[in-house]
């Protein structure tokens, strides 16, 4: 009798351990824990209102979009430190093109996306063709793109107020900014959140449905074995960093639209947040493991955590300290598998 309950207990434990073996389960566990915190510290019911969740999603979207590209790069065992700066440059470039030059969004958006992808591809080329370490190559791009942003904006925010000899003049704000910044479905969903979902979908298709994705995992798992199996390693790295640049450009356009201006300082330290999201999701910095679903969970985990702290009126200082603690906790949780 006692024996059989013992066996059932051991069985139950091993089943739980097996479940914990799945990265998605571990990532979800962290998210659920954070969510439960929200249920408890609900700030007089603020957590139970949809508007809170909507704003969390809206606020997290730009980071999430960056994290999509970061996931692709990290799966190849690389890293992209330039995403925040590329975001800043594109925010400026998009504002100049659409506000100052009055380009139609049909022209300005594709142009900005192409520039972003190009900047990413330059990092990728430095890494693939010259064998520069991803950390160094993208660090250089991070500094360069920030400089570029300040160069084209003369170090000032690009808005619809421009200085002319007659003083400040207000230009017309193009409709595209408002369009991206608005909420739809009776104000229940932000457009940027939809854009984030689209980015998730694109990167999921690349990673899980296309041959390219398999190649990215293979490169991250064992680059030399991948090369000797006929994987076009250099082209795939160009693709990964190019897509990271592309997503940075998407995030840059969203940021500019939300702020109704292009701030050359926009996106500073966002790359760290994107990395944190990817890591909290459980994608391995060693490469070869992970996925975009994990990044979605990571985005929500960080997003909820910050939202819960802010609705409970926690100051920025405690918010930052807690974020650091949560990253450590999440990474420790990832280790259960190896026990």
């Amino acid at each position: 009798m006692a024996r059989s309950t013992d066996a059932a207990g051991a069985n139950g434990r091993s089943r739980m351990l097996r479940w914990l073996g799945y990265p998605h389960v571990r990532a979800l566990l962290a998210l659920v824990l954070v969510f439960c915190l929200g249920l408890y510290f609900n700030a007089d019911g603020a957590f139970f209102r949809w508007a809170t969740h909507r704003d969390m999603l809206r606020h997290s979207s730009v980071y999430g979009i960056l994290a999509c590209g970061m996931t692709l790069v990290i799966i190849t065992a690389g890293i992209d430190l330039s995403v925040g700066s590329v975001l800043g440059f594109i925010a400026v470039a998009f504002s100049i093109l659409s506000i100052h030059h009055g380009w139609s969004p049909w022209l300005a958006i594709p142009a900005c996306l192409a520039i972003g992808a190009l900047l990413g591809a330059v990092s990728g080329a430095l890494i693939a063709a010259f064998g520069i370490q991803p950390f160094i190559a993208t660090l250089a791009m991070m500094v360069f793109a920030r400089g570029l942003a300040k160069f084209v904006s003369h170090g000032m925010k690009v808005s619809n107020y421009v200085q002319t000899p007659e003083g400040y003049v207000a230009l017309d704000m193009p409709a595209i900014h408002g369009l991206i910044d608005q909420r739809i479905l009776n104000g229940n969903l932000a457009v940027v959140t939809l854009i984030f979902l689209a980015c998730l979908l694109i990167s999921h298709v690349v990673l899980a449905r296309l041959r390219w994705g398999r190649y990215l995992y293979a490169i991250g798992g064992n680059e030399e074995a991948a090369r000797l199996s006929g994987v076009p390693v250099a082209r795939m790295k160009l693709l990964a960093y190019g897509l990271a640049g592309f997503f940075s450009a998407v995030a840059g356009i969203c940021q500019a639209a939300q702020e109704y201006q292009g701030d050359p300082e926009a996106g500073a330290t966002y790359e760290l947040k994107a990395i944190a999201i990817v890591v909290i999701g459980g994608t391995s910095l060693m490469g070869g493991r992970g996925g975009i679903l994990l990044t979605l969970i990571g985005t929500l985990t960080i997003g909820y955590m910050e939202k819960i702290l802010s609705i409970n009126a926690a100051g920025e200082a405690s918010r930052l300290m807690l974020t650091g603690a949560i990253i450590v906790a999440a990474v420790l949780l990832q280790r259960i598998r190896r026990r």
């Binding site: 995992y217 064992n222 074995a225």
Partner: peptide, 9 residues
């Protein structure tokens, strides 16, 4: 291990 297989796949 180093050039033949992607061990984690």
């Amino acid at each position: 291990k180093t050039t033949g297989l992607v061990l984690g796949m």
